[in-house]
Amino acid sequence: MAKKEYAFYPGCSSQSKASASNYLTSVNSMCKTLDIKLTEIPDWNCCGASIGYAEGGELPRHVMNARNFALAEQHLPGQQVVATCAACWLGARETKERLDASAQLMADTNEALKEAGLHYKAEVEIRHMVEVLIEDFGYDALGKPVVKPLGGLKIAGYVGCQTNRPFGIAGESFENPMYLDKLVETLGAEPVANYEQKVTCCGGALAFSETEKSQAQIKNIVESAYDQGADLIVTPCPLCQANVEIYQEQINKRYGTKFNMPVTYYSQLMSVAYGGSTKDAGLDGQLIRAPKLEEIAKK
């Protein structure tokens, strides 16, 4: 039996050949080392993400999340639901809090769920993978399996918004969360101490609709990492990763910059530090490759 078992909610972007498929690859590699067993919630659906509200409204959004809860309760009883995507986690937690706070909303949700033959018993707990790592394992335990310390790498911990606000990781401040820096240190790399853009918004879903405004945000995020001498940026959020990596090319065109800053997930760093190959860590899925990290992976 695995050391820890969870019901897993991967989310749309982590599916095979989707924009964050390399996130899932590295999470699987990391979990193997830590002896974590993730069982996908059967037939899970989209959480509605941060942009679903406009057309979806309130109850339909909660019902979508509650369907996942009900499926988890039914098929994986007693297991906490773990999301790797920041938006999935946030959307699910939001729904859970609203339903817990309102008997009416709970009743309405279950009335709708009945149409899909489901019932939510309000027993699930929703967690982000980062919470699992920090709270169920702790930095010391996460450091133990390190076989290839990431020495010589300077890493900017870009926390972003949705794992940080409004819920955040217990014990962290909204304005200056330290968990990514501590994780980077645990893996033997040097965290950028004064990364002032660590909680700046990348524009989120508005990167698609308000491109110029979002790219101005992303420019600051990347520029500050360069100013602090970072070799790469690390983030816990699939949309942060995609936005900050993908749009560097357009930002270069727009602003005449020469950005080429790798943006990786925390799980990719962990996979490499735990002895994973470039492929195990999903580093072959980078649009902007991370040569220094790949070098360590190949050692």
Binding site: C12, S13, Q15, D43, N45, C46, G48, A49, I51, G52, Y53, A54, E55, G56, A205, L206, F208, S209, E210
Partner: peptide, 19 residues
């Protein structure tokens, strides 16, 4: 533009349950 995108997004995800 965000209204347009948000509408596309929701209609996209409810078609199959996933984006």
């Amino acid at each position: 533009p965000t209204r347009v995108f948000a509408t596309l997004f929701w209609n996209n995800l409810i078609r199959t349950g996933r984006v």
